[in-house]
Each structure stands twice: as C-alpha cells, then as structure tokens.
Amino acid sequence: MRIQVNKYPQLRTLCWNRPDDAVVDGPEALGLYENNWRLIDPEGFDPQEAKLLAGLVARFGNGVFMPA
C-alpha cells in the first residue's frame, strides 16, 4: 500500500519535513498517526482521510488504534 501524503491534510501536517510528493506505506502512515496523534485535529478529518485511517487500523493495527 502506497499513500500519497498530499491527498490527506492531517497526514500532510505530520509529514511537514518531507517533500511535497512524499509517499509512505501503510504501516508507516499508521505509525505517523499513532505517534503524533497529539498534533492531529480529529474533527478536521475529511471523510476520505477518516476512511484511510480506519482502513490502516483494520489492516495494520489489527483493529486497534494506539495513539502515543
């Protein structure tokens, strides 16, 4: 699974130090969300990004989201 960071505003915020055309894989994206959850605005998720996060949790987190 390859995720274009620029398609997801909250993920883009977490990848501020990466190039604009950055791509991450699924486990890395889930890790970014979990390890940096304090920087996320949960109400700022658009439906597309919420669906992405739910899919990442289901596929790579065994259904468990564990923010740090």
Results as ranks from 00 to 15, higher is better:
M1L: 09
I3E: 05
V5N: 00
V5F: 04
V5R: 00
N6D: 11
N6L: 08
K7D: 11
K7I: 09
K7C: 10
K7L: 09
Y8D: 01
Y8S: 04
Y8R: 07
P9L: 09
P9A: 09
P9K: 03
P9C: 13
Q10K: 08
Q10P: 02
Q10R: 10
L11T: 02
L11H: 06
R12I: 07
R12M: 14
W16S: 10
W16Y: 13
N17Q: 14
N17F: 13
N17V: 10
R18W: 15
R18D: 14
R18T: 12
R18I: 13
P19I: 15
P19S: 15
D20Q: 12
D20G: 08
A22G: 10
V23M: 11
V23G: 01
V23C: 08
V23D: 07
V24M: 04
V24E: 02
D25T: 01
G26H: 00
G26Q: 01
G26L: 02
G26Y: 01
E28N: 01
E28W: 03
E28K: 05
L30G: 08
L30R: 05
G31H: 01
G31W: 07
G31K: 01
L32N: 05
L32T: 04
L32V: 01
L32P: 02
Y33D: 02
Y33N: 04
E34W: 00
E34H: 02
E34L: 05
E34R: 08
N35W: 01
N35M: 06
N36Q: 04
W37K: 09
L39A: 11
L39Q: 15
L39N: 11
I40S: 08
D41E: 14
D41A: 12
D41H: 13
D41V: 14
D41K: 12
P42V: 10
P42T: 12
E43W: 11
E43V: 14
E43P: 02
G44D: 03
G44E: 00
G44M: 05
G44A: 12
G44W: 05
F45L: 13
F45K: 09
D46F: 06
D46R: 12
D46Y: 09
P47A: 10
P47S: 13
Q48T: 15
Q48C: 07
Q48K: 15
E49W: 04
E49I: 07
A50W: 08
A50L: 15
A50S: 15
A50M: 11
K51Y: 09
L52I: 06
L52W: 02
L53W: 01
L53Y: 01
A54H: 11
L56E: 03
L56M: 05
V57S: 05
V57E: 00
A58N: 11
A58E: 14
R59G: 03
R59L: 10
F60H: 05
F60A: 06
F60I: 00
F60T: 07
G61P: 06
G61W: 05
G61L: 02
N62H: 11
N62Y: 13
N62S: 12
G63V: 07
G63R: 11
G63Y: 06
G63I: 08
G63Q: 11
G63N: 10
V64Q: 13
F65R: 03
F65L: 15
M66T: 15
M66N: 14
M66C: 13
P67H: 11
P67C: 06
